[in-house]
Design a binder for these strands. Structure first.
Length: 717
RNA sequence: GCGCGGUUAGCUCAGUUGGUAGAGCAUCCCCUUGACGUGGGGAGGGCCAGGGGUUCGAGUCCCUUACCGCGCACCA
């Protein structure tokens, strides 16, 4: 009887040593996994592969509960398949997380009273790189604490040269295939962060604003944004609107406007909603998507009214240089003084796009950017989903994905930030054209021969992240790519279904011709005990590392798994974690009892009829659990193990065993001893993917064969 | 506007292909029985949101209503 089982299980004391043992075994690396013993007991090669590419955590902060959840889910899958004899690769990485990290760093600068706009690009890049690399190693330590059995020898950073090369090759391929274009379009401009953003990086928030009605010659126009109206010289109405049949396309009308008399031109366009406002509007093509499209259709001039910082330009006359907020009431005041104000609707509820990071209102601006034409890519991805080349868990998310793919829009992949992969392109200073320059060799514009400068922009992080599965595995030639692509499962948060999963699917299919993963397992958000979203400002953030320290990583993992169905949110309650801490101790004590009771046990025995039935029931349960894991019902498998061990094994079987073990019937006693020992050993195997530390610790202590439990054979064929 | 979910015990949630409901926490009672008091044994508590339908049988499938939530979208 080992001394250590006389004391309660102390997770914090054993976990680091256990992890070290696994790590040093080399078995996280699929190339170093030990051979399997075949039916004849001979070593055999692992022929089937199983691979997961880890969603690379952002190297800009501490791991949060969502990270702990993905580590747990993926580690369970990997450990399960490794024990089942597959060649398992779990590929770890770290994400530079372009915009996200730059925002984090900018906040840090702000606290220090500094600003990115006061430093050179190079300086900013260098500082963020140092910051990121420091965080990266910190974060890796945390992944280890959570038990991640990933292959550290392969770890890749999203700014590593291999990734950049892959990304450049894809950029070039898109261009060669005519799927890439540079164009001046309306982009989502964040005046705080000074960059354009993709549609996914903006949120819409409902707001109540004033809606103004102004006299515009013979018309009354409605607007929520008087500050954009300075250059409005076109007045538009629906061609079928009976109220305005008297006016004809191209008709010119002299009228008094904000800063004096102007000549306005009448346009008819079907984009106008006759029901809205007065059915007449003036257009500001530089700052509105709809207006921009109308302007394009009618070939109208474009003029910027608001600058990149959100201040009015000289076109605004006396209001030039003012912020929107300051200018708006003054403009309205002036129009009122000129008797051009008709009325104000104070309770106009609409939704305005805001930057998803700073929540500042997005200012639509026209800017030349690189765009990827998405329709072809999306069509292929849609086909892959419909033909089940890739299976998305859950069906609900599959529908959401298809819906998104069907309504795909072109993707602006340029960002005006320093922290990212530079776009390998040059811009002409004369004709403003942009062109790809992969080897940085072009010195003149191929269109007009003008002088060129390097494109100062970087790629949207998701453009490179979208290529992560084949970038990590070394497309097209490496052995890893040939062995492990397509990967088995992509396990990630449902919240990045479009940002990441859809892009990986589209780009993976486009570049490699194959889906990047066969199954997609999406997890929901980890919320606090009451279902509230965790946030620093609410003060309800639960740190997985603290939980792990207090209750043990195994308990944390169980708390994250039991009751957590794919695609739905999970409430993390420390009380629940505590229940699984007790469970770890329960297993510890079960072991103690079995060890004490089986010291004089024979190696084998003929099972009594009753014991054979117990064993059969356990075998049936083991098969059930195996099937549950295969079909991604990890929550069911974990709960079944919990109940079997606590209720069936400990409370019932062990209690029932006490008289038998003390009894006179030696055959019955031997049978029961063998039964208890065998079930315990197999239970440890079944439980290992879920609670790797306590099971390995016990395995090492009672050590039948001196192997790591991590690479033992799964007890179900 | 279009699309997608949820509504099960006091609280937070499970319930795999339809076969008369489960967990954790909370509540109440009993137990210093040598594996474990981080325990053991037991109890209470649910017309599974309302209504309709399919079925021998529905929490589970279909329709509908109400409430809550989420995603997408260029209404000035």
């Amino acid at each position: 009887m080992l001394e250590k089982f006389l004391k309660p299980y102390d997770a914090a004391a054993v976990e680091p040593a256990i992890y070290k043992m696994w790590d040093e075994s080399g078995f996280f690396n699929p190339d170093k996994l030990p051979p399997r013993l075949d039916a004849q007991g001979k070593p055999a090669e692992r022929t089937e592969q199983f691979s997961i590419i880890m969603p690379p955590p952002n190297a800009n902060g501490s791991l949060h509960a969502g990270h702990a959840l993905f580590v747990t889910l993926q580690d369970i899958m990997i450990r399960f398949e490794r024990m089942r004899g597959k060649k398992t690769l779990w590929y770890p990485g770290a994400d530079h997380a372009g915009f996200e990290t730059q925002v984090v760093y900018e906040k840090k600068l702000e606290k220090e009273g500094r600003s990115r706009f006061e430093m050179s690009r190079e300086q900013l890049y260098k500082e963020i790189l140092d910051f990121t690399l420091a965080n990266k190693s910190f974060m890796e330590g945390q992944l280890r604490q959570l038990g991640a059995s990933c292959d550290w020898s392969r770890e890749l950073f999203t700014l590593d040269e291999r990734v950049v090369k892959t990304v450049y090759a894809t950029f070039k391929k898109l261009s060669d295939d005519g799927l890439l274009y540079r164009g001046s379009r309306i982009v989502n401009w964040c005046p705080k962060h000074q960059t354009s953003l993709s549609n996914l990086e903006t949120n819409r928030t409902p707001r109540t604003d004033a809606f103004y009605y102004f006299k515009y010659g013979p018309f009354t126009i409605g607007t929520a944004r008087p500050e954009t109206k300075f250059g409005d010289k076109y007045v538009v109405m629906h061609p079928a609107d009976p109220r305005y049949v008297a006016y004809t396309e191209g008709q010119q009308i002299d009228l008094e406007w904000i800063n004096g008399p102007i000549t306005a031109t009448v346009l008819k366009d079907e984009a106008i909603d006759m029901e809205f406002g007065t059915g007449v509007m003036t257009i500001t093509p530089w700052h509105d998507q709809t207006d921009f499209e109308i302007a394009k259709r009618h070939n109208l001039p474009l003029e910027q009214v608001i600058d990149w910082r959100g201040k009015l330009l000289p076109i605004a006359g006396e209001f030039a240089g003012m912020s929107i907020k300051d200018a708006r009431p003054k403009i309205v005041e002036k129009l009122k003084a000129k008797d051009l104000l008709v009325k104000i609707d104070e309770a106009y509820v609409h939704e305005v796009p805001v930057c998803y990071k700073c929540e500042r209102e997005i200012e639509p601006q026209i800017k030349a950017q690189w765009f990827v034409a998405m329709q072809t890519l999306a069509d292929r991805a849609k086909e892959a989903v419909q033909k089940k080349e890739v299976t998305i868990l859950t069906e609900q998310h599959e529908k959401i994905m298809l819906h998104w793919l069907e309504n795909i829009q072109d993707w602006n992949i340029s960002r005006q930030i320093a922290w990212g992969i530079p776009i390998p392109a040059k811009l002409c200073e004369k004709c403003n054209d942009g062109f790809i320059d992969m080897d940085d060799s072009k010195t003149a514009c191929p269109t007009c021969g003008g002088p060129v400068v390097a494109d100062p922009d970087t790629f949207d992080t998701w453009f490179s992240s979208g290529q992560w599965p084949f970038a990590t595995l070394g497309y097209p030639d490496s052995a890893d790519f040939k062995t492990f692509y397509p990967t088995s499962v992509m396990e990630t948060g449902a919240d990045i279904l479009f940002f990441w999963v859809a892009r990986m699917l589209m780009l993976g299919l486009y570049v490699t011709g194959k889906v990047p993963f066969k199954d997609v397992y999406l997890h929901g958000l980890v919320r606090d005990a009451h279902g509230k979203k965790m946030s620093k400002s609410k003060g309800n953030v639960i740190s997985p590392l603290e939980i792990s320290n207090e209750y043990g990583t195994d308990a944390l993992r169980m708390g994250l798994i039991v009751g957590n169905t794919p695609g739905t949110d999970l409430n993390l309650d420390p009380k629940k974690i505590n229940a699984y801490k007790k469970f770890a101790n329960k297993i510890w004590n079960i072991t103690r009892f079995v060890l004490e009771s089986t010291q004089d046990a024979p190696a084998t025995a003929t099972l009594t009829e009753q014991d054979a039935a117990h064993l059969a029931a356990f075998r049936a349960l083991s098969q059930d659990i195996t099937k549950d894991i295969e079909e991604y019902r990890l929550y069911m498998a974990a709960e079944k193990l919990y109940h079997y061990l606590w209720d069936a094994f400990a409370s019932t079987l062990l209690e029932e065993s006490k008289p038998i073990l003390k009894g006179e019937d030696t055959a019955a006693k031997a049978s029961r001893q063998v039964l208890l020992r065998d079930i315990l050993l197999d239970s440890l195997k079944l439980l290992h993917p879920f609670m790797p530390f306590v099971t390995e610790e016990i395995w090492q202590s009672i050590g039948t064969p001196q192997n790591l439990l991590m690479v033992e054979h799964w007890p179900v064929k």
